[in-house]
Design a protein around this nucleic acid. Structure first.
Lengths: 153, 153
DNA sequence: ACAATGATATCAGACTACTGATATAAGAGC
DNA sequence: GCTCTTATATCAGTAGTCTGATATCATTGT
């Protein structure tokens, strides 16, 4: 009663939907990432948001939501969890009473630096078996896929 | 204060983390898929599970969880929502009192057929600009990424 | 026959992620 | 000045996803 194929076989292999294969690969990569960050208590979305705040300090929640392709509501939850853990703090924006400037705390910056190394190592593995041409083709295709559907929104 | 790059620029373009670019592409594709299935009231995970049940009728929740690389608990939620919507029903397994055989209802099968066409159309777009060799390379790489991290579990 | 192990389903709690609705602040146009 | 639109933040509700814990059924080993 379990004729369910293994990864790499049947529809779960090279003959499956491209969309399914992408999701399968991303899911595997996400699990590997979360395992790597587990002992730091950092999730993948939290790592992404800390990275963004570090790159663009003083951004608002709305800014971060746009950058991460998430809704402001979703970002608000992630930011709240990071704040609860003492990894960022909110400051008033002198020019706009509605805006909240988000900045990493010392602890947040420290965690980000530790996390970044591990994530980078995982990322290098992804391209380990590729030639420079293959990697470039891949990157271009991934960006195109994101752009195509983004425009359609 | 919003120097946040557009998709395709800076870290969100070809120079970004491969893992990030993959996620960005998958997120865009998922949004396109959910928009295409919106009026049917079918989500992407629901479409996946209906497809699996159709391919392997009588599977248990645990079987489906393995096939979809999800935990049994997650699958239980999706199955419960599908059941609540009248798209599948549970039947007793004569050989195992614990197991529940999952099967699509008429309505579920009908929805699956409508959904499948739309998803297939989107999937063809993904490969539209690729040569046969490029597509084959891509498929192989995606499967490899999934397999690498799956083995490490 | 019985105990240990494994498989299945499910409860509880947490984090992401969405839509929809609401409230308030800023900016634009008149 | 006043309104209309836009931007921002947040509340409420739903769906998907995880880990951890429990309970029950099946199988295996002795």
């Amino acid at each position: 009663m379990q004729p369910v194929p293994e990864i790499g076989e049947g529809k779960r292999g090279e003959s499956g939907y491209l969309g399914y294969l992408m999701r399968q690969a991303v899911a595997a990569n996400r699990q590997a990432t979360e395992r790597a960050l587990e002992d730091l208590g950092v999730t993948q979305p939290q790592f992404l948001v800390m990275t963004l705040i570090h790159a663009y300090p003083g951004s608002s929640g709305a800014d971060l939501a746009r950058a991460a392709m998430l809704t402001p509501q979703t970002m608000s939850v992630i930011v709240a969890n990071l704040e609860k853990a003492g990894r960022l703090h909110r400051a008033n924006d002198p020019a706009n009473a509605r805006r909240q400037r988000l900045e990493l705390t010392e602890e947040g910056l420290d965690l980000l630096n530790q996390s970044r190394e591990r994530v980078r190592a995982l990322d290098r593995e992804l391209a380990a078996d590729l030639t420079a041409e293959q990697e470039q083709f891949l990157r271009k295709w991934l960006v195109q896929v994101a752009q195509r559907h983004d425009r359609a929104t």
